[in-house]
Design a protein around this nucleic acid. Sequence first.
RNA 1: GGGCCGUUAGCUCAGUCUGGCAGAGCACCUGCCUUUUAAGCAGGGUGUCACUGGUUCGAAUCCAGUACGGCUCACCA
Length: 459
Amino acid sequence: MAKALQKAGEGETPSAEAPLLSVAGRLVSVRVMGKATFAHIRDGTGQIQIYLRQDEVGEAGYRQWLAYYDLGDFVGVQGSLFRTRTGEVTLRVSSLVMLAKALRPLPEKWHGLTDVELRYRQRYLDLISNAEVRNTFVIRSRLVSAIRRFLDERGFLEVETPVLQPIYGGAAARPFVTHHNELDSDLYLRISDELYLKRLIIGGLDRVYEIGHDFRNEGVSTRHHPEFTQIEVYQAYADYNEMMRLTEELWHSAAKQVLGTGQVTYQDHTIDLTPPWARVTMRDAVLQGCGIDIAQESDVAALRQRIEERGLKVELKANWGKQVEELFETFVQPGLIQPTFVMDYPLDISPLAKKKPNEEKWVERFEIFVAGLECGNAFSELNDPLDQRQRFESQNAQLVDGDEEAHPMDEDWIRALEHGMPPTGGLGFGIDRMTMLYTNNPSIRDVILFPALRSKAQR
RNA sequence: GGGCCGUUAGCUCAGUCUGGCAGAGCACCUGCCUUUUAAGCAGGGUGUCACUGGUUCGAAUCCAGUACGGCUCACCA
């Protein structure tokens, strides 16, 4: 409203007969000069200068203004527009009213609010003082809208599936556990939406997506947050190649719509989101990254021997797939700056992905990397219930072995698959990480309005 | 969970090394000022120096513990 008013005043020469206008907003700056005052009020759309004179609001009114109105208060003013000496469109106030009083002051006007803890705990103050913070969250919201629009236009149906689940699954992570009193049973906060969305594919909803929070019981870092927003998309009669095309088009379209450009600047990099994105197989990527051809080293022992021969400094993992992943994360991932699909993953770290044709060790899976950040995960969905059972059994053995992130056996999911699932492409990516890239924020906590903090004793 | 650093006025920060009356700017309060915009001028300090204990004649300052936070490593997407 304030911005619209300012625009309205721009075209015309403000005059004495200017119409009476009303505006409301928060007082964000005040300059008192005796019997006249300049101030700025701000609402969600912008800010406008107001000008109060004792001879226009009356002696009593002006005395009240000086005595009771402070920075931070919400006021309503009525008056007409004019231009000051410096050309700023300003509302000359004929009457004002207190809409809401602020008892605590705003953050310091020049330095603003920089204390990171206060910025997160009292995000409302951060939003008031830091325009770029506000902008980040506006962009985040618009990105989500653009994603919805993109998918809706292509016939996808947005759905909602359970957050509280009797068996968690769809990802490799430790879950949060909670308890249902009436049913007297433990439930898990979901670590992904995957298995429920695929049940909908089985049920004939051929194109579905869900945007929601997943919960993973892990540490926090600049890239991780225990509660994060993920979108998952499933399309029947498609495979992972189709999902790559969908991904690059969606990310590019969202950037164009929200930022007006297909290129984003992130830290020191200019990232070009224009399709098609680079595609590289896991095998080639690791070969280029550290000189080991993982296809030639068919088990974990052989792989470790190669690592030792080459003197590579890398953590040792329990199985072949995890060791491959470790090599990739150490020697390849940090260098993947421009958007890249890394394709064809080891089967033993992909219990829900379909095997590549005539391959025993590889699945049709890709992950999305931008600016060294893992942004998403997708595959041709495993739709063979017999194969699925074997995968779960193997995962369950690891779980029993002490790997807390292994996938638990899920009989109900196998039962669903036994009723038949069409070939399907599935995709998931993090909205938070996407927002980090699109708003140039290096920490995930800067794209989450109220990030997790240790609870503080009542003060 | 480990390592390093931090916590002083409502906010942004000095002061801690080398113990000696608790400081500055903004905000706030008082007075002046009818086109200012980090308004200006004159005056005012509003404080559990995170908390608990110790050393000392004396602790914001030195020591120990606790809480919370930041960075980072580990874990993870």
